[in-house]
Computed example of a mutant assay.
Amino acid sequence: MAYSHDSVADIRSESFPDYEARIEDAYIEGYDPASLGAPHSSLHTRKLWFGLGLILAALFGIGLSVWGAAAHIWGTGTQIDLSNRLLVLGLIEVAVTLTLGFVLIASSRKGYKEYRKRTGRVN
Rank of each mutant, 00 (worst) to 15 (best):
L56W: 06
A34V: 13
D18P: 00
V8R: 08
K117D: 13
N123S: 07
A21H: 12
F16R: 11
A58H: 03
I23A: 13
Y19Q: 10
S41F: 05
S42P: 09
E93N: 10
G111I: 00
W49L: 06
L56Y: 07
A58W: 01
A58N: 05
A2S: 14
G120K: 03
G37F: 08
S65P: 00
R12P: 01
W67N: 11
G111W: 01
G77I: 08
I73A: 07
I55P: 03
P17R: 02
V66T: 10
D25K: 04
Y19R: 09
H40F: 10
A69E: 01
E20P: 00
V94L: 10
G30E: 00
T97G: 04
A69L: 02
I92N: 04
D10I: 04
L54V: 12
I92A: 14
E24I: 00
G101R: 08
L82I: 08
E29G: 03
W74F: 14
G77L: 05
G37Q: 12
E24R: 05
M1R: 14
H44V: 07
T76D: 01
E14C: 09
Y3L: 15
G37S: 13
G68A: 02
E14V: 03
L64V: 11
V88N: 06
K110G: 01
R46K: 14
M1G: 14
I73S: 11
R85I: 10
S41Q: 04
G61I: 10
S107N: 07
Y31M: 04
P17C: 04
G75P: 08
R109H: 08
T76I: 14
H40R: 08
T99G: 05
G68P: 02
G61E: 08
W49H: 15
E24K: 01
P33F: 04
G77N: 10
Y19T: 08
W49Y: 15
G111V: 00
P33L: 06
A26M: 05
G68N: 03
G30F: 00
V66A: 10
R85T: 15
R121I: 00
W67Y: 14
V122E: 13
G53K: 05
L64T: 10
V88G: 03
G30P: 00
E29Q: 10
L91V: 11
H44L: 12
A9F: 04
L89N: 11
T78G: 09
A2G: 09
L36V: 15
Y19K: 11
E24F: 10
L54N: 09
S13Y: 01
I92S: 04
G51C: 07
R12G: 03
P33S: 03
R22H: 12
G37N: 09
L86S: 05
L87C: 00
Y27G: 02
L56T: 13
A21I: 14
Q79P: 00
L43T: 10
S41P: 06
V94G: 02
H5G: 14
G63V: 04
I28V: 09
A69H: 00
L104C: 12
Y27V: 01
